[in-house]
Each structure stands twice: as C-alpha cells, then as structure tokens.
C-alpha cells in the first residue's frame, strides 16, 4: 500500500485470559476519511480503540497509527490524536473550564479560540463543577476538548451519547468541517443516521472480526433492494405463494408485503406484482439499518 494510512490494522488478535476479544481484525482508515466503525455490543469496538491508543497490548497482528506502533510510541501518537471515550471520566471537583485547562496542559498544545467557539456552540457553562453536570454536559466537555485540540486524527467512541438533537447537529456540522479541512476521523457509533450522514466508509465488526467493510455507496449498491407492496388482503396470499415458488421470501401484515431481494430479482418481483395489478409498489435500496441489522442479528 503506497498511500499513508492514519490507521492500519492487520490481523489484530487480543485475548483476555481464555476469551478472544479480537480475532484477526483488519481495519484501514484513509487520510481525510470519516470512517464508521460499527458492531453490536461486545463486538470489540472499544477494545480495538484501546489498542489503537496503546492502552491495551495486542497479542498478535500489526497496528499502526499515524505510521507508528502504539504499543511502543503511544505518547508520540496520542499527542496527535483527539479521543472521546465511550464512558467519559473527568475530575469531579474541577470545573468544565479547569478540565479543559488540565487536558491542554497534559497534551502540551491548545487552540483557546477554538475552545471558546465550541463552548458557545455547544452551549456549555464552563464555570460549573463536573460533578454537577448532566451526562450530556460531561460529554460536551469531552467534545470541546477533542474537537478543538490541534490534532491530525480523531477517534470518537459514541461521541453523541447523552446529547440532545440540537447538539447532535452541532457535532455533525463540526465533524464535517474537520473532514473538509483534512482531519481523519474514526467514528464508533450506534446511531446509524449519524453514520449515514457523516461517514464515507464503514467497517462492521462482530465477535472480534470484520464482517463488512468498504465505502458506503458500494455497500448500499451491493446490498439487498427493499420492495414494499400494499394491496387488498385477498390478493396478497396468492402473491406470497408465487414469490415463494420463485424462491423469494416475503413478510407481511395482511395489507402490506415486504420483500428484500438482490438487484437481479427485482424484475421478477415487479412482474408478479404487475400480474396481480398491484398499484402501490415501493422499490428502494436497503437502508443502512437493514444492512447493519442483517449483521447485528445472530445467525
């Protein structure tokens, strides 16, 4: 691979005793990309992120972040990384402003103007003690610190957890702005709309392995097409039978039938609908939710 990749993981293995949390995971994030990192609970997302930050030691595999090995050079790497953890931990007796001062002091670099701007955008009162903040406000402190720090790479684990919809929009706008300025973002989130809006590529993991990866447009093209028919209840059973004879499974609730098929099967489905003169037919590429849920569900 000739292009420099901010994150490159090959065959990563991580065990905790007899439990294998990551089982040969691969992950590549290209420069300037907003890369979605998804998976069900317990899939290994947070474990992967902790390996990238040098908090966990891998048992096997190659891990490079900004070209360096986090197992040996995490301090150098992390000065160029902004991180938001899944559970934000802050010093409870400090104010929000003092937390920003502390984090900037530890990092050794700061953009105070940007901090001020983001604090206003996120409507965050920096004069209050952390322990008086709601979950959402603690999250905002972490967001202001991460988004304002002059770094090259952002690793965000459930960054909008606890935020109201308005603040989620502020977050989305800011990440988009950072991406336009060339920053690379690894975004781990369960909010599929957020991933769909922001990410140009995704990696889906399950049980410590990658089950899907690629740019979003390709994934959506390769995924199933969703066809929905609305018709008289007396017609739909016959339609269902004919679809079954073609090897196509349909689900319905009496007046509505939903079918998920590959692109090649769409004409056959539409033909059956037309033969029964069904006028209300909707045909669209499978949503991201359909795509992800097909991997989230147990096989």
């Amino acid at each position: 691979m000739s292009e420099f990749q901010p994150i490159r993981v090959e065959s990563l293995v991580k065990r905790f005793g007899s439990f294998t949390a990551l089982d040969g995971l691969d992950l590549v994030v290209s420069p300037g990309e907003v890369h979605g990192f998804l998976g069900p609970n317990g899939a290994g997302k947070s474990t992967t992120i902790r390996v990238l930050l040098g908090l966990y030691r891998p048992d096997a595999g190659i891990v490079r972040v900004l070209g360096k090995d986090p197992a040996h050079e995490s301090a150098t790497i992390n000065r160029q990384v902004s991180y938001i953890p899944g559970d934000v931990a802050l010093w409870p007796n400090l104010t929000g402003g003092q937390v920003l001062d502390a984090l900037a002091g530890l990092r050794g670099s700061r953009d105070e103007a940007r901090e001020k701007e983001l604090s206003e955008l996120f409507d965050l009162d920096l004069s209050k003690k952390v322990r008086t903040y709601s979950k959402g406000n603690r999250q905002k402190v972490a967001l202001v610190a991460a988004l304002s720090a002059p770094t090259k790479l952002l690793i965000l684990d459930e960054p909008t957890s606890g935020l109201d919809p308005l603040m989620e929009k502020v977050f989305t706008d800011q990440v988009r702005l950072l991406a336009e300025r060339g920053r690379t973002v690894l975004l781990s989130s369960h909010i599929l709309a957020e991933v769909q809006n922001l990410c140009s590529a995704v990696t889906i993991i399950k049980a410590g392995r990658v089950v899907e990866h690629g740019d979003l447009a390709t994934l959506r093209r390769l995924s199933l097409t969703r066809v929905e028919m609305v018709a008289d209840p007396s017609v739909l059973p016959q339609v269902t039978t004919e679809l079954a004879e073609s090897g196509i499974k349909a689900t319905g609730d009496g007046t509505r039938l939903v079918i998920q098929v590959s692109t090649e099967q769409v004409p056959a489905v539409l033909g059956i609908a037309a033969s029964h003169q069904i006028g209300q037919v909707t045909c669209e590429p499978a949503s991201l939710e359909d795509l992800f849920l097909s991997h989230y569900q147990e096989s």
């Binding site: 902790r50 908090l55 992390n78 160029q80 990384v81 953890p85 934000v88 802050l90 010093w91 990092r107």
Partner: peptide, 17 residues
C-alpha cells in the same frame, strides 16, 4: 478504575512518565 489514567494517556502522556 475511574478512567482518569486512560484520559491522561490519551492526551499523549507516556505510561513511564
């Protein structure tokens, strides 16, 4: 245990330091 060491290391502090 409280997650503060993780926060500090993530800002670029080395474990040794």
């Amino acid at each position: 245990r409280e997650g503060l060491v993780e926060l500090e290391i993530a800002t670029g502090m080395s474990r040794a330091r």
